[in-house]
């Protein structure tokens, strides 16, 4: 049997007539369409950051940075304005710290319960239910804090004022529990069963397996969920605006009204601030501070996850 390299194609090959030229064009066009959409999101972010930077630079042209950092009060619209950003930062840290001390333990324990202890059937409806909680508009949480939690707490803490950091922080914490629980649960659930079996085979109990093997392995994912929750707490607006008040004052007293950075931005952008004025530019200075805070947190999270992520086959 002889083979001829230049033999004519077999008859059935006539049936295949691809339009290679057209496919190439389509491929090219599709590629640029996707690139354009990717560019839109990137360009928007860059635009926001640039606006923030320009307005902030102008702000610091009028108000020196040291006053921004050292003033003891935040009164940008007074006759003798003061621009102490730490007044707002202290309020943000206060509400966030209360929120985190609620959300991290409850969220993590809920995650452990869901992934390790709950039967599959329970898990299959409990997890979506938890995620629905994350979908409740924060304005609802805000009024919940103001109209239910605060009056309730006043039964026990007479010094508690109508607007206060405590109930805002507590409810803020409740609102970010689903985030912590869901993301931590994903991290824990992703740990391969073989690792758990390895621990059981050494004679570990369930608790020893979870604490000694599963949680350390899921650490990077758990910390990432924590950092995301902290960023969310710092950036959260409606709950603190409604329930924590609008009263910029320095200090970490959770029973009195305070004004967080986000609450100031809401207040200042509600309309009576003339565009281009110094008071208007404070918006961007505060926005920039907020942006830098969350950026630092996200960079930390990124670094931590990269450093501690373990890869399993």
């Amino acid at each position: 049997m002889s083979t001829n390299p230049s033999s004519p194609p077999s008859p059935s090959s006539d049936l295949f007539r691809p339009n290679r030229q057209l496919s190439k064009w389509v491929e090219l066009v599709v590629k640029y369409i996707f690139a354009a959409f990717a560019l839109i999101s990137v360009a928007t972010t860059i635009g926001i950051v640039l606006t923030l930077i320009f307005e902030t630079v102008e702000f610091f042209g009028d108000v020196p940075l040291w006053r921004f950092l050292t003033d003891r009060e935040w009164t940008p619209r007074f006759v003798n304005p003061q621009y102490g950003i730490f007044v707002l930062i202290s309020a943000t840290l206060l509400t966030s710290a209360i929120a985190i001390s609620v959300a991290l333990p409850i969220g993590l324990l809920a995650a452990i319960c869901l992934s390790e202890y709950a039967p599959p059937k329970v898990r299959s409806w409990l997890k979506p239910a938890l995620e629905i909680l994350a979908g409740v508009p924060t304005v609802v949480f805000g009024y919940f804090a103001l109209l239910l939690v605060t009056p309730f707490l006043q039964n026990f803490i007479p010094a508690l004022q109508g607007f206060n950091a405590l109930s805002a922080g507590l409810v803020l914490g409740v609102s970010i529990i689903p985030l912590v629980a869901s993301l931590s649960e994903d991290a824990i659930y992703a740990i391969p069963g073989s690792l758990r079996q390895g621990a059981y085979a050494l004679g570990a109990t369930k608790r020893e397996t979870i604490v000694g093997v599963v949680l350390p392995s899921a650490l990077s994912g758990i910390v990432a969920s924590f950092v995301l929750a902290i960023s969310r707490a710092i950036g959260e607006t409606m709950i603190v605006t409604i329930a924590a008040g609008q009263n910029p004052q320095m200090g970490l007293n959770p029973f009195v009204p305070v004004m967080t950075m986000t609450a100031y931005i809401v207040q200042a952008s509600l309309g009576d601030t003339p565009a281009g004025s110094l008071a208007y530019r404070t918006l961007f200075a505060v926005g920039m501070t907020l942006f830098l805070l969350t950026l630092v947190l996200n960079i930390f999270s990124f670094w931590f996850v990269r450093k501690f992520r373990e890869t399993y086959e």
Partner: peptide
């Protein structure tokens, strides 16, 4: 097991873990 399943701990702690819990 079929696939090696080292814990995400140090080599030392991998060995010590079982001893500690027991």
């Amino acid at each position: 097991f079929q696939k090696p399943t080292p814990f995400s701990k140090s080599i030392y702690e991998n060995i010590a873990f079982g001893a500690k819990i027991n």
